[in-house]
Design a binder for these strands. Sequence first.
DNA 1: TCAATAGTTCAACATTAATTGTAATATTGG
DNA 2: CCAATATTACAATTAATGTTGAACTATTGA
Lengths: 118, 118
Amino acid sequence: MNKNTAITIFESLSSAVRLDVYRLLIKMGNEGMVAGEIASTLNVPSTNLSFHLKGLTHSGLINVEQEGRFQRYRANLPLMLGLIAYLTDECCAGKPETCGEFSPESICSQCADSGSGK
Amino acid sequence: MNKNTAITIFESLSSAVRLDVYRLLIKMGNEGMVAGEIASTLNVPSTNLSFHLKGLTHSGLINVEQEGRFQRYRANLPLMLGLIAYLTDECCAGKPETCGEFSPESICSQCADSGSGK
DNA sequence: TCAATAGTTCAACATTAATTGTAATATTGG
DNA sequence: CCAATATTACAATTAATGTTGAACTATTGA
């Protein structure tokens, strides 16, 4: 995970249509969904959906697999885990003692290691 | 957490400056940083930084506290946890058996409950 | 009160993204 | 091969965001 990847992921999820698509695909799990089903479920014109699917695919948040004349899309959950790690990687870096009340549920590995400081 | 809040958070983090600011503030923990320090650390003109700090504050990702003539900013980590929960809330909803290879590290509570399906 | 410092607001301009309809591509079944 | 279906690519319009410098507000210390 690098900065540009992270920015692309955040851009991907900063539109209502794309966020709906991503959450829908997470809900569908490994089964995924083909483009036409997504369009009719979310009531988005297919030409517009295609634009947004492209963005999500480009960021890696969703994957696509061809199935005859259909394109089946699935969420890529591991990428989200990588993003979270990227954000919290350096939490309280070098000063775990300042982390005490800061990190609420051991999202910060430094704090967890140092026993919630202060 | 609702959809609009989530979109605002993603928009907040979809610019290089704002992502840098947020990660810097996570690194600084409860100590936080005043606006001028942030500007000089990241080499961003103060007028531009102010624009981005406003966006981050509006989304709730960072908080601000006045300290004399300074404004001290801190990251709001709990909000990030809420966002993650919002995304993965409905993972594999209704069909945990489809979740098997999908959720890699029990990010999906449904899968965890059903013993990773398949 | 005055000068210095810290930040923000404003207005102009530049850049980038979203939406729509139309046309193009690709696969399937007859 | 042809017609139908699924989806994507293109181009034009509209809208939203990012950046900058200059002006403004508020606080501090002499």
